[in-house]
Design a protein around this nucleic acid. Structure first.
Lengths: 347, 347
DNA sequence: TGTTAGCACTCAAGGTATGAGAGTGCTAAC
DNA sequence: GTTAGCACTCTCATACCTTGAGTGCTAACA
C-alpha cells in the first residue's frame, strides 16, 4: 500500500491545491505549478493510478480530481507539511492569557474564541466535567421566601435553587456541616452513602421535619453529582457559510441545527479519544454521522493537571487547512495547560 | 391620512397574504380570496392609491405589491387580528414553569427557548442587569495558590477570580466584614465611598500590606458594580435560514455574524423602550441599523417585581407573523413575571 | 360617479440550444 | 518510461425564446 515518492508528491500537490480552491484539480495545473519536471500526460497517468487506489475521486469524466476521505487520511498521516504559526500571534496569545487568569469558564471560552480566530473555522469547546475537581467550599443561602440556593465552589462555581421551608439559622448550621464533611473531596468521591452519613449528623444537630431533611439531602447530592449540564461552547458558527461546500442553504441549515443541538454535539465531541494528549482528526465518514460526511472534526484534550480535562475541537469542511488547524490547537492547548496548571496548583 | 374601510380591508388582506407566501401579491389573488365582491380592476385602483400613499411597494412593473415599512407599521398599529394561542400550549408552558422554579438564569434561558419554539423565529433574551438585585451574601474562597474567588450571591451568582497573596484566615475575616457591610444592599447602592469605608474597617481588624488591601478593595468594587457581562442568549438562530428572504447565503452570513456579535446585539435590544411593560415592534429601518433593514425586532420587558428587568425579543423577517409573535411574547412574559415574583418575594 | 371588462404592455422566470473551456483517456512516437 | 497530440466528454455560462402573472389605461356600463 505504499506509494512511490512521485505519487506522494503528486497527491500532496493535489490536496494542497484543492484545500485552497475547492475546485477539482486537473493534471495540467499540477504539472505547471509544481516543478516536478513532468508533463500533464504523465501526471494524468499517475492520477489515474491514485484514483484506482482510492485516494482520489473524479466528480465526472471531464473534471479534475478531488481527494477522497482516504486521500485526506493519507495526507494527514503522512504528507502534510508542518504549519508554523507567526511569532506575533503566539506572543499575543501568551500576553492575553497572562492578563486573563480568571475563572475557568472564561479561560475555556477564550480558548474557543482564540482557536476560531486563528483558524477561521467553527470551534467547539467543552468544559471539564468537574467531577474530579476538589470542592473548596459549600454554601447555603436563603435568597427568597422558601427559596434556598446551594453553591458549590470548586475551580468554578455551581449553584442550584430549591424551594424549601427553612430559616436562616438552619441554613447556617447546615452549611457548616456540609463544609466539614465535604470540602476537600471531589465530586466523584462523594457517594450517596457518604451523604446519608451527613444526614444522620444533621438529625442530631438540627431539628427538621424528616421530609425536609430528605429533600435537602437529595438536593445536595444531585447538585454535586449532576454532571448533565457540562457546558459546551460554539464559536464562529457563521464561518460555515463562508465555504462554497455550504453555499446550499439547505445544507448549511442542517449544520446549524446540529451546532445548536448541544446534546448531540457533545456526543460527537466526546466520541473522540479522551486518553491521549495528541491531536485527533476525524475525516468525513470517520465521524459515523450522516451530517458530518462532508466535514472534519479535529480535536485535542486540554487538562487541568491530572484532575479533569475537556476538549477543544474544530469543525470545518473536509478540505480544511489541517496543518494550520493542528498547529493552532496544539499551541492553544499548550498555553492553556500552562495557565491552568498554575491556576489550580495548591502549593 | 385615514383610510377608507375598503382600503383598510384590502391592505390587511395583502399583508396577511404576503406574510404567508413571501411573494408579491396581485389584485386578482385578493379579489378571489376575500369576499369583498370587487373585481380585480377595482382592487387594482385601490392598490395604486395605497402605493401612492406609501403603504405598498411594487418591486417591478409587472409584479404584485408588497408592504412597505409604513404598511407594516399601519398593519401592526391598526389592522392586525389578535392571535389566540392554543390552550394546550398555554397549559404546557405553565406546567413546565411550575416544575422549573430554579435559577434565574435557567428561567431566562427557558423563556428564550420557549419563545422561539412558539414563534419559530430567532429569539434574544437578556438577563436583568443585576444592579438592582439585593446582595444576599458575599464570600471569599481560596481556590488555589494565591488565587482567590469572590462570590456575590443575589438572585443569581456572580463570581470573579483574582491573584493575590492572602491566607485562609484573612479570607474568612474579610468575608465577615464584607457581609456585614454589604449584604442587604443592591449593587447600585454601593458607591466607592462606601467601599472605602470598608477599607478603613479592614485596616483596623486585619493586618495586610497596603498594596494588597487596595487591590482587594478594587477587586470587590469592580466585581459588584461590573455590569459589562450581562448575558445575552440567542435561540434558534438557524431559523433565519428558513425564510426565502435569506436564501442568499451572503445575506444570511451577515445576519449570523451580527447574532454572534453579542455587544452590538445588546445595543440593538437595549435601544428598545425600557420603561413600559407593553410590546414594542421595530420594523425594518426603524431599527436604525443597516443589517436590520429587512428584519423586524419585537420586544417586551419582563421584570423581577420592581427590582430589575430584562428583555425578551424576537428577530425575524419583516413579514413575520406579528400577531402570533405579539401573543407569544405577551404570554411568556406574563407567566415568567408570575414565577419570578414568587421566586424573589421576601415575605 | 363608481365599477368592471377588455386589451396592450411589461417583466421575471424557466426552458432550451449553443459554444467555450477544462479536463480526460488513449495511442503512437520518442 | 515519458510525452505530444487528438478525439471525446461534461460543465458552465450565455443568449434566446416562451410563458404567465400582473399592471395601467380606456371605454362601457349601472
Amino acid at each position: 500500500m505504499d506509494l512511490s515518492d512521485r505519487k506522494r508528491k503528486i497527491l500532496q500537490a493535489i490536496i494542497d491545491e484543492y484545500i485552497g480552491t475547492a475546485e477539482p484539480v486537473g493534471s495540467r495545473a499540477i504539472s505547471k505549478k509544481e516543478n516536478l519536471g513532468l508533463s500533464s500526460a504523465t501526471i494524468r497517468n499517475e492520477m489515474a493510478d491514485l484514483e484506482e487506489m482510492g485516494y482520489l475521486i473524479q466528480p465526472h469524466t471531464s473534471a479534475g480530481r478531488i481527494p477522497s476521505d482516504e486521500g485526506y487520511r493519507f495526507y494527514v498521516n503522512s504528507l502534510m507539511q508542518k504549519y508554523k504559526i507567526g511569532v506575533e500571534a503566539v506572543s499575543q496569545l501568551q500576553m492575553i492569557l497572562e492578563n486573563r487568569v480568571s475563572q475557568l469558564e472564561k479561560i475555556i471560552k477564550f480558548a474557543g474564541a482564540m482557536a476560531s480566530k486563528l483558524t477561521d473555522y467553527t470551534t467547539v469547546v467543552t468544559a471539564p466535567s468537574g467531577q474530579n475537581l476538589e470542592i473548596k467550599k459549600i454554601d447555603l443561602v436563603l435568597i427568597g421566601n422558601r427559596t434556598v440556593m446551594l453553591i458549590v465552589v470548586t475551580q468554578t462555581v455551581r449553584n442550584q435553587v430549591m424551594n424549601i421551608d427553612i430559616d436562616e439559622e438552619v441554613c447556617r448550621k447546615l452549611a457548616v456541616i456540609l463544609n466539614q464533611k465535604l470540602s476537600g473531596l471531589t465530586a466523584s468521591e462523594i457517594t450517596f452513602d457518604r451523604i446519608q452519613e451527613i444526614q444522620r449528623e444533621i438529625e442530631q444537630t438540627v431539628s427538621l421535619s424528616p421530609k425536609v431533611l430528605i429533600d435537602i439531602i437529595h438536593f445536595v447530592y444531585d447538585t454535586i453529582t449532576d454532571d448533565a449540564d457540562t457546558e459546551i461552547y460554539v464559536n464562529n458558527a457563521k464561518s460555515i457559510l463562508k465555504y462554497p461546500e455550504y453555499s446550499d442553504v439547505e445544507k448549511a441549515g442542517k449544520i446549524f441545527s446540529f451546532l445548536e443541538d448541544k446534546e448531540n454535539l457533545k456526543k460527537l465531541v466526546n466520541s473522540t479519544d479522551s486518553s491521549g494528549d495528541g491531536i485527533e482528526a476525524k475525516i468525513g465518514k470517520e465521524n459515523n454521522l450522516e451530517i458530518m460526511n462532508d466535514c472534519s472534526l479535529v480535536s485535542i484534550n486540554y487538562s487541568l493537571g491530572d484532575k479533569a480535562s475537556g476538549k477543544l475541537a474544530v469543525i470545518g469542511p473536509k478540505r480544511m487547512n489541517y496543518s494550520k488547524v493542528f498547529a493552532s490547537l496544539d499551541l492553544i492547548s499548550n498555553e492553556i495547560d500552562k495557565i491552568l496548571k498554575y491556576y489550580i496548583s495548591d502549593e
